[in-house]
């Protein structure tokens, strides 16, 4: 279960952003909606432990994540939160298998080879594991980044504008994959978007 309480943040010289309290139960799937500039990315960064808020608490399964030290927080994030960015951000010098496996080793989790393979094949990439990111299409890379976000079986899967650079067909695909994989891996899902195509696909919405 994830909860945020009385969160506020303000950037240097910017207006103060206030975030309504929010509770996400296990395996719930949410859309985080808002116009650009409304603070979606800021909230996502705060929830995923990348940006310390001015005030308020973020709790993930009873852990107040901003009470952790920097190093503990890095590890906690690696093990409990999977993030899918708008761009795939894969490491160019590693092949797909290693890119996914890297997420385990960086989070201090033992690499589970069959888990990596299972994830990649469930995303239709079984025959590409030895390929390098340069050799793949944008859509395929996005799927690899989803596999990477899920490899440590996180409690929470966060996707930040996962569809904005994709065409209709691919956007639809990615959404399907995200909801399906989150459910299969028993993770809660938060998709931040301002993409109208996504709007009605999930039943829970958090508006900024």
């Amino acid at each position: 279960m994830i909860s945020i309480q009385s969160l506020t943040h303000n950037y240097h010289n910017g207006p103060t952003l206030k975030f309504p309290d929010w509770e996400i139960l296990n395996e719930e799937q949410w859309l985080l909606l808002g116009a650009s500039g409304s603070g979606k990315s800021t909230l996502l960064n705060i929830i995923s432990g990348l940006l310390k808020p001015e005030n308020g608490k973020v709790k993930l399964n009873e852990t107040d994540i901003y009470s952790l030290s920097q190093k503990e927080m890095d590890r906690f994030r690696g093990q409990n939160i999977g993030i899918v960015f708008q761009k795939p951000h894969l490491i160019k010098s590693l092949n797909l298998f290693d890119n996914v496996a890297l997420a385990s080793s960086l989070a201090g989790v033992k690499i589970n080879q069959s888990r990596v393979m299972d994830l990649l094949s469930s995303l239709g990439l079984a025959d590409k594991t030895k390929n390098y990111p340069e050799e793949l299409s944008q859509g395929q890379l996005q799927r690899v980044s989803i596999a990477r976000a899920l490899v440590n079986s996180p409690a929470l899967l966060i996707a930040d504008e996962p569809t904005s650079s994709l065409d209709d067909e691919n956007a639809d695909n990615v959404l399907k994959i995200l909801t399906q994989q989150a459910a299969e891996n028993h993770a809660s899902l938060v998709i931040a978007t301002h993409d109208k195509r996504v709007k009605d696909k999930l039943n829970k919405e958090y508006l900024l």
Partner: peptide
């Protein structure tokens, strides 16, 4: 820089 930021988001510590 992006690689490093991604690795941080994946759980790597600064010292690593």
């Amino acid at each position: 820089k992006y690689d490093l930021a991604v690795m941080r988001s994946l759980g790597a510590s600064k010292s690593k």
